[in-house]
Design a protein around this nucleic acid. Structure first.
Length: 254
DNA sequence: ATGGCCTCGGTTCGAGGA
């Protein structure tokens, strides 16, 4: 069983990339963020043609999330019932006995801004909802763009980034609170090389210079962590023409 | 040097992302 997450930064622009990536990597589940599509524009037929069904919730211009699955999906929930929100940032479904949560955590813009406070509130509500959800379904995976680099080793230049949005202490504390529910960062279950990231700015030739952050994560409850035999970041699509600024993360379960 | 680049909406610039 392979579960993956990818912020595609517009599914309209990146549909060919997604189709190509799934042809190369026929994962069981792919969580997408920043689809930026209203539901009437979601490419259901194109995905069905390659064997994936979809649960999705989107809006014009911003945000939008989806779960693509080779297997049937049950109990689809759109957004956090504990956090009424115009912004479409979460979708969940039960697939092959696993509660899959796809999350697009707010960016936060800058420390102390209104959007930053919204990010922290959003994360607190996510934690509260996950706490209840884990009781109902101990096999739970939260995949997505967290917009948080959990530790300095997830940052290409910690000194340059210190205190700024995506790495600030309050954001890291919010991330640790989610992990404190007993959710484990699948990537850190394994020995990993240094300087592996999931996002690079489009500017400054950041990808070529590996000036990145690891902000896309797969969190697993202990029963799933025990089944996890690999977690990798696939840099390949970041080298393709007209890429997303994020690249996929994949967890393999026994 | 506090911007660089990309996407969107909707026009040729501003907002937002990270």
């Amino acid at each position: 069983m392979k579960l993956a997450t990818w912020n595609v930064n517009s599914l309209k622009v990146r549909l060919p990339h997604v189709l190509q990536w799934l042809a190369d990597n026929p994962v069981d589940v792919l969580c997408l963020q920043e689809t930026k599509l209203t539901d009437d524009k979601f490419p259901v037929a194109e995905l069905e043609a390659i064997g994936y069904q979809a649960a999705y919730t989107g809006q014009k211009t911003y945000n939008g999330v989806a779960i693509l699955s080779r297997h049937p999906m049950a109990d689809v929930v759109k957004n956090n019932p504990l956090f009424p929100d115009e912004q479409q940032r979460m979708v969940a479904a039960t697939i092959e006995g696993i509660r899959v949560v796809c999350a697009y955590v707010p960016n936060g813009q800058s420390v102390g801004s209104e959007k930053y406070e919204y990010k922290l509130r959003w994360l607190a509500a996510l934690r509260d909802w996950l706490r209840a959800e884990m009781v109902r379904q101990p096999n739970l995976a939260v995949l997505g763009d967290y917009n948080i680099a959990p530790a300095d080793r997830d940052v290409h230049d910690p000194a340059a980034w210190v205190g700024s949005v995506l790495v600030s202490e309050a954001e890291r504390a919010a991330f640790r609170e989610v992990c404190g529910l007993d959710l484990i960062d699948a990537f850190r279950l394994f020995e990993q090389a240094d300087k592996l990231f999931s996002w690079w700015d489009y500017r400054q030739m950041a990808f070529r210079r590996n000036m990145g952050l690891r902000i896309d994560h797969i969190l697993l409850t202990p029963p799933l962590a025990a089944r996890c035999i690999a977690c990798v970041i696939d840099k390949a699509p970041r080298k393709w023409e007209q890429p997303s600024d994020h690249t996929p993360v994949i967890a393999t379960l026994d």
